[in-house]
Design a protein around this nucleic acid. Structure first.
Lengths: 343, 343
DNA sequence: ATCAAAATTTTACGCGCGTAAAAAAATAAT
DNA sequence: ATTATTTTTTTACGCGCGTAAAATTTTGAT
């Protein structure tokens, strides 16, 4: 492997004593050539350093081995975590994942979709921004490129959607909170960027009514992706105005809850389920940091692994079947409750 | 722009009434062709949708417009934040950034470097894992690809290093803490993955000695990138054994501090600089979440913008000068103290 | 040994574009 | 109008590889 460098496949084929078309076949799929030739190629591969030029390969192959991954906001550890899982699986399956973040901007999202298109990826895993996404741009993209949506669903777009079952999240938290103490109010942003937020609100209301309880939805102002700060500001206002209808708050997501808890601490409000506490706070997502909040956050956790696995597997299936599925698939995974100190 | 799609540059040239070599020249640099022809091309560009095939372009051009960005751990919002800044600037400058994360593993790091090499990028911005990095692999990579290191320095590798001045961080926190209260102990991991940690420890000791104070370095066990959990475990042990030498703790970085604060809360230890508090805790980095800890974290902040800007600009300069700099450059940016409630 | 099946080699073309060289055209300067 | 200069066109080759078709070799079973 320390010998002179090989320029191209022609040269490498000559050295390994195999014809170029066969070598080409080998790189496409090592098992497509006879064992003895495979071994000869691999022997040469160990002596000489050669890898096919990826640009020439991609130009000529109908199907690239690239998989695009686009998430709305990579600085959110939740997406970073999912992306990590997905990347891993793609690599294991012999694909080359390329990761993009829309950085919370729909302009960026469209721009990335555009440059993703020119990469001619075998498939794309797309977690759209949601409400502010340019729907028509996404729809056009999905028509051209085999795409599986995840995290946020947009009706009818992509060949499949894989995400979490928001009803499962909320029903578990609401059930637990109201069984053990006062029923929860629901704390959320007035104009949530993410469609999951709406589903969670509806699930909250439905669940409360099923339990014969009065739903209280508290909506706070704020835009953008600085959820913690939005939650903190909203909570500060509520606490100052003593406007909380119950002593239990269920936040739409963990990042809002992180802000909420920080506001409580500032105001000297004791959060927790122990005696002497003023307030219980729970939430959804099991954000990587939620176990380090003060107090640690009771939350409903995504089945990260199941979601990312199934998203990737669905995409592989989609790719193998030529970019089209019989019918659009929707897969939702249940949450599981993680009881910590906050509620 | 809704007209029939163009297959290749040949076709597009025919339609726009310009010869293909000239069109090629235009896409390389629009200002390299006469104004009148530029306008004709751009007029055609508005009517017909055409973009040069990126693979064919990259195969034939000596220099790609790709810039590789590799960070050690993208699930750490600190790196996500830096990556966001860098991506932005690269796009603005007409490059195509591609982001990779080593996910904390040196195997991954080498693997990514390898696939990065085959992308023939114009340049690479590399934040190495640090201690566990495969130095020889990185060195070999830097020889082949114009590379600027950032965040963690590895002596002699890459054409330049851009990062923060650890001494500036620590001197400010130590000075402040010991001026206002009891001098701090230094809380860190025994075997830090990141070389900055070592520099911070040395800076702490030097600064304490300069102030005529006794340094106390507390080293805790733990490996990997789950710093919060490591910090929490370490702090729990310290608090249980009442092993803290002073009532002021300076953590090596914010993620450790987040864990420390969570342990304090669990143990009922009151952190803050107000009267009645048991402990002051400060740290370094200004992690995106450090303002939402309980209490909010006093910390020394990176000049994120300056670091990412200067890293990118250095890389551009490096690219323009053909991949070599007169001599290796090292640029360090000062921190600024952010006073919050924890100390 | 015989023969069909499977794998490989030979040969050749195409992908979409960069780019060099010479000829032609357009522009600017005198 | 003439000449010098800049820009564009024509022509042609190369990049590294995919892939098709026909010829050849190897393999495995009889």
């Amino acid at each position: 492997m320390a010998d002179a460098k090989i320029k191209n496949m022609e040269e490498f084929a000559a050295i390994s004593g195999i014809s170029r078309p066969t070598v080409s076949k080998y790189f496409h799929d090592p098992n497509s050539v006879r064992k003895s030739t495979r071994e000869r190629i691999e022997a040469a591969l160990e002596q000489y350093e050669y890898r096919p030029n990826i640009f020439a390969v991609n130009q000529n192959r109908k199907l690239t081995k690239t998989i695009g991954i686009l998430v709305p906001y990579l600085a959110d550890p939740f997406f970073a975590e999912i992306a990590r899982n997905i990347e891993r699986r793609c690599i294991d399956a012999g694909y080359r994942p390329t990761l993009f973040s829309a950085h919370g901007s729909s302009d960026f999202e469209v721009e990335i979709l555009d440059s993703l298109r020119s990469l001619k990826p075998a498939g794309v895993l797309l977690a759209p921004l949601g409400r502010i996404s340019d729907k028509s741009a996404i729809e056009a993209f999905c028509r051209d490129v085999p795409t599986v949506l995840f995290d946020s669903n947009i009706e009818g777009m992509g060949e499949a959607f894989v995400g979490s079952d928001n009803y499962s999240f909320v029903s578990q938290t609401v059930e637990y909170l109201s069984r053990v103490g006062e029923p929860p109010s629901f704390f959320e942003m007035r104009n949530p960027a993410n469609p999951n937020a709406n589903k969670r609100r509806h699930a909250y209301i439905a669940m409360m009514e099923r339990l014969g309880l009065d739903p209280h939805v508290i909506q706070i102002d704020g835009t953008g992706w600085g959820f913690e700060e939005i939650g903190r500001k909203g909570a500060l206002k509520l606490l100052e105005e003593k406007a909380l209808p119950t002593d239990t708050v269920l936040c739409s997501n963990d990042r809002l809850a992180i802000g909420f808890l920080s506001a409580c601490f500032e105001k000297g409000v004791h959060v927790g389920r122990k005696v002497g506490c003023d307030l219980r706070v729970a939430s959804h997502d099991d954000h990587p940091f939620s176990r380090f909040t003060c107090p640690s956050l009771t939350t409903a956790a995504h089945d990260y692994t199941a979601v990312s696995n199934h998203a990737v597997e669905t995409l592989f299936r989609l790719i193998e079947s030529g970019g089209k599925l019989e019918r659009r698939e929707e897969s939702l995974f249940a949450a599981h409750l993680i009881m910590r100190a906050s509620a």
